[in-house]
Design a binder for these strands. Structure first.
Lengths: 242, 242
DNA sequence: ACTTTTACTGAGGCTAACTCATCAATCTTG
DNA sequence: CAAGATTGATGAGTTAGCCTCAGTAAAAGT
């Protein structure tokens, strides 16, 4: 066992398993994307992955669970890509727009998987772990949002989840429209979203009790100036009063 | 044939057919809603509708087409309900909010059918007539939007479709969140949507040349203060420099 | 009353998901 | 290193459920 040559087969064995599982997932991904859930045949997936049909059932209980794992992998990959696409040090609003652009293009590319996702969700209990990758992806938005609040870019008095729903909802519908019409006007969608976010996130109380956000910043500026004035006054007074 | 009594069976015959078709649709609706598409069994639908399994295939080519027709009926009903729920003479923004509230509650009630809809859409060519009821429903928004533009409530320089995507997208995601969490905060969703619509639809150029509203006033205030400071500086300098 | 047309039926065909007895390969142990 | 044990892989067979179609009943036509 200490002999390196004898270790090789051990690691190879593990790698073999993982490679096989990965091959099945990749084959299933392609088959589902091309044929849809009902159209996809387990036999075809097995053929694509170069395994026997029965082998698939050693890794996944049934066709539905296979789809579920493919979908989970899709969202994990999406999360990786999104994190890579977001500029680290930029203002939060720019990070949001980068996320939006990434999300939109990816969703248009793999639009079927949005449908698969809701198909999977439909028959899952609320707290199923298989939905975690989706939750992790959604939290990418939340993280940026919170950072925006911390940096003072966004006012803190709107619930994050409403903006999250608006963000992903708008993008998904825009993607659907683009896919259905086979057109691509990403830029105009992005411009509109940015407009809405800037107008609403930066000045979120405009509707309820207007004039509180940027004005808040400006208010702080004013306060600082007032302090400066007072200091100036202090500096003067000794000379003038004496 | 001219005898009225001989006409009766003819109409009864037609009514019978329509009643049967309607019974099948209703049975299918319930079965799909309870069991999902895959879980629903044609035999069960036939039993619910009190017809033989083969009879269903006289009306619908296959299970998928049956779902398609159920979905179409669902959207038609939604359109009727929406038109009824919208106050005729109110401002467009209020009509939009009425539509939003109606849409949200209905979608939460029958959330499965949203999933079915995308399932149906996935395997349909772009120009399939069976999607018409959905298009008709979507146009309810468009009509209100245009009316708002005509009345001068909304500025005309944003594309309708972006606001439509935002409107339905936000609501669908909000509905999903509510269904998944089994919570109901319709009012807070509505408040947020109204805020966004009012901020964006009424003052649509905010994003292009930012910071022109209240900050302008504050800016003037700051400018005035700066002038004061300069005056103060002037007042001091003679005394300190001399 | 007899034919034709139309509406309906449900047993059976067929496809495709899933199982399981069997085999192959690797690991363990005397 | 050979023999047994364990684990992984296979694909023919089972089964569920969609859909067909030959046959029946009812209505319309003549």
């Amino acid at each position: 066992m200490a002999d390196p040559s004898s270790e090789k087969p051990t690691t190879t064995q593990r790698e073999k398993l993982e490679a096989k599982e990965s091959a099945i997932l990749a084959a299933a991904h392609r088959e589902f994307a091309e044929m849809g859930f009902d159209g996809a045949k387990m036999a075809a997936i097995a053929r694509r992955a170069s395994v026997a049909e029965g082998t698939i059932y050693l890794y996944y209980r049934n066709k539905a669970e296979l789809l579920e794992r493919v979908v989970a992998r899709f969202w994990s990959a999406l999360t990786e890509g999104a994190l890579a696409a977001i500029p680290e040090q930029s203002p939060a609003i720019e990070q949001l727009m980068a996320l939006a652009r990434y999300h939109l293009t990816e969703v248009v590319n793999d639009f079927d998987f949005i449908g698969f996702t809701s198909q999977v969700r439909q028959k899952k209990p609320r707290d199923d772990r298989s939905l975690d990758p989706i939750r992790r992806y959604v939290r990418v938005f939340d993280a940026i949002y919170r950072r925006g609040v911390d940096r003072g870019e966004f006012s803190a008095n709107t619930e994050c989840r409403h903006w999250r729903d608006l963000f992903y909802g708008q993008l998904e519908y825009a993607a659907r429209t683009m896919v259905l019409r086979n057109s691509n006007d990403t830029d105009s969608v992005m411009a509109h979203l940015e407009h809405v976010l800037r107008a609403g996130l930066a000045q979120p109380r405009l509707a309820d009790s207007p004039q509180q956000t940027h004005e808040e910043d400006l208010g702080q500026l004013l306060a600082a100036m007032k302090r400066d004035l007072e200091r100036l006054e202090q500096a003067i007074q000794p000379k003038t009063s004496t």
